[in-house]
């Protein structure tokens, strides 16, 4: 299996994992719940980027469906948590 269609994918994996570590620090240490919510939203985004680079590395293209679905799920999760914390609840 041709695992390296482009040179040095490890640089991008390392960079995105560094970003993931920083976001996990904010999730664990966040002073408020809203910090944790937006860090989790960004974690979804970074995981999508990792899936994209990973599918180029392997050589398939069936992760685009997962990218589309995961972006929708991340947005809906953020909106649901924000509406849960908002005054008045889901129905005003």
């Amino acid at each position: 299996m041709d695992l390296l269609p482009f040179p040095f994918p490890h640089i991008f994996f390392t960079g995105l994992l560094l970003a993931l570590t920083l976001l996990l620090y904010r999730v664990v240490r966040g002073p408020h719940v809203l910090d944790r919510i937006m860090a989790a939203d960004s974690i979804t985004l970074v995981i999508i980027c990792l899936m994209g680079i990973w599918q180029v590395t392997v050589g398939t293209s069936f992760f685009f469906d997962a990218i589309l679905a995961l972006s929708v799920v991340g947005f809906i999760g953020t909106i649901a948590l924000a509406k849960y914390l908002e005054r008045g609840g889901l129905i005003h």
Binding site: I37, I67, F75, I79, A82
Partner: peptide, 23 residues
Amino acid sequence: KAVTAVVFQFVTTPIAAHMIARV
């Protein structure tokens, strides 16, 4: 699929940020 995901993200990320700021 990729352009759809990018357009969706560009539309929905400011909405999520504004909702978090409003809370």
